[in-house]
Amino acid sequence: MTIPVLSHQNSARASAPGPALLINSLVKEFKPSKEFAAKNPHRLTEDGLHRAVDGVNLTINRGEVTVLLGANGAGKTTTLACAQGLLKPDGGSVELLGSSPWGASPELRSRVGIMLQDGGLPQHMRPVPLLRHIARMYAQPLDLDALVKRLGIDTFNGTTVRRLSGGQKQRVALAAAIIGQPELLFLDEPTAGLDPQSRSVVFDIISELRDAGVAIVLTTHLLDDAQRIADRVFMIKRGTVVLSGSMAEVLAAGGKNQQTLTFTGGTGLQLVDFLPQAQSDGLVLLEKAAGRYEISGDIKPHHLVALTNYWQKLGAIPTEFTLAPRTLEDIFLELSGNEIR
């Protein structure tokens, strides 16, 4: 059973003109830790500062889900904290619903919903009384009972926030972010730690909000989820935007016939014969796990012939062999590199 969580007034407000969030040439510098400075001397400015955000431009439209991708420490959270008015940048400008986010009025804050990475929920409270309290800050909050039921929060309302599981806390934090019917919604890892049923509910809610005209900014490391729900993608690497566009554009980037070939196993599969040819054709090869390979790019029949000939020569057969359109995860790994940070 689907309980509508949106009232009609939201659609009216969300149809206002102009982008919901406009970030121009944003710069934010921090004093680096000694450890960071020692390891990354090339990433410091002349003044010895770490430029965590270095000229980021973002446009967030109403009625769209925009996903912000980037490895840990890429500058996503810093960018968003500046956009939310929680941090003051060192350069550039931010227009949050047409106004400056720093020192935002209560009226402006009432139009923006924020789900923070750490939740920000008081530990001693039970979920429903907490949400009821937050709802009192708004003139027309969502129907609390419907929202609580929809997110399954009623099933663990007897427990204080301190004792909730990660996924349960996520659901309460999501409810807290949307209860004020925001026009612009920031969601940080909304599906992390959720069971499949709750994840599906969260996706449905996000879709409904989008359809009602809400601008949604999503940060997540769950790239399958991002690909499923997002309309627009920005990817940040070392403080700059390295990729942006609609999901369709990003997936088709570098040619229309981008595909990913994944295979596992075979004896001593080193790809020796295949490598030079693939690389000269511009294919990207990654060893995703021991013995599990991924080849992505414009894969042609002769690449498959070369591979199968190679296996025939070896007398080996892979245990897994799939050819699929390129995913957001493939693109992310190509752009961000495979190193772990």
């Binding site: 007034q9 009216a12 407000r13 209560p106 009226e107 402006l108 804050r109 009432s110 139009r111 009192r136 800050m137 708004y138 003139a139 027309q140 909050p141 004020g180 019917q181």
Partner: peptide, 8 residues
């Protein structure tokens, strides 16, 4: 249409 949704 309300321009904001803050309680008083």
């Amino acid at each position: 249409t309300r321009t904001h949704n803050a309680a008083s």
